[in-house]
Nucleic acid binder design. Structure first.
Length: 258
DNA sequence: ATGTCCCTATGTTAGGGA
């Protein structure tokens, strides 16, 4: 059994005590982090190692940044989506590696607001690159997990107030269509494979008492290849970290694979 | 009620991003 969690931490350095507490309590085998907001050499590797985890980092100063933590060895690390931007991609939003016989990726999809606009165009281009990469990975027929902050609410069931969010980059039809395309390639969205209820969220804004009012969004997802989906036992959202002092605005979601 | 938090730098306050 392997437990894999994804967590947008909104700065690993600002969040380190919370993340270490959560690692001790939840103890997933593999952790996919997003928005670490630091360069590789500023990543708190010693503290993470002391907690029992190895780390592979694709960092960036101030913005973005992703990492893979694992209790088991991490090999064959790839930083950045291999399907690149024409002019190159400066933004650290993707890292992939092999852990415990499984290919895992931590991804931080662009937010895309305001939409329409340049940022939304970049989001859609990034999603098309991810679709192309997923297609290539599927051809290998290996078990893999593409997880992270997708910045997409797949349906209105995943939004506390759909009418007010319909024009947002997280909910627009173009974003949802590309997310569906990813699933229709043959990937299984783990949470929806096991839960049909509306109103289950992974993100609550810091503003306007969103957490206290449960004004949330479900934007953090784990997508499983057919070989990984065959092994899916459990998927759940761990709301506890969001309720703590100095919390990230996201909370972890995790799967258990046989 | 644009109500918060985190980052950086022409740095102890302001602006960008989410």
């Amino acid at each position: 059994m392997v437990r894999i969690a994804t967590f947008n931490v909104n700065s690993i350095r600002a969040r380190l005590p919370n993340v270490l507490d959560w690692l001790r309590e939840a103890g997933p085998d593999v952790v996919l982090l997003q928005e670490i907001k630091c360069q590789d050499d500023a990543f708190p590797a010693l503290e993470i190692e002391a907690a029992g985890y190895r780390a592979a980092v694709h960092g960036q100063k101030s913005y973005n940044g992703v990492a893979i933590l694992s209790k088991h060895p991490i090999t064959d690390v790839v930083r950045g989506l291999p399907e690149g931007e024409p002019e190159g991609d400066e933004q650290a939003r993707y890292i992939e590696a092999t852990v415990a016989g499984l290919r895992v990726a931590s991804l931080y999809l662009p937010n895309g607001n305001p939409a329409p606009g340049e940022k939304f165009d970049y989001k859609l281009r990034w999603m098309r690159r991810l679709v192309a990469h997923a297609h290539n990975l599927l051809a290998t027929e290996q078990p893999f997990v593409l997880a992270g902050d997708y910045n997409v609410c797949p349906t209105d069931d995943d939004v506390y107030d759909p009418a007010n969010w319909q024009d947002d980059a997280l909910c627009r039809p173009e974003s949802r269509a590309l997310f569906r395309q990813l699933c229709h390639l043959g990937l299984t969205e783990a949470f929806r494979a096991l839960h049909s209820e509306a109103g289950r969220y992974t993100f609550w804004d810091y503003q306007a008492g969103a957490w206290q009012r449960d004004n949330g969004l479900r934007i953090d997802h784990l997508l499983l290849s057919p070989q990984a989906a065959d092994r899916l036992v459990t998927c759940d959202i761990d709301k506890a970290p969001r309720g703590r002092d100095k919390a990230s605005d996201h909370t972890p979601i995790w799967v258990e694979l046989q």
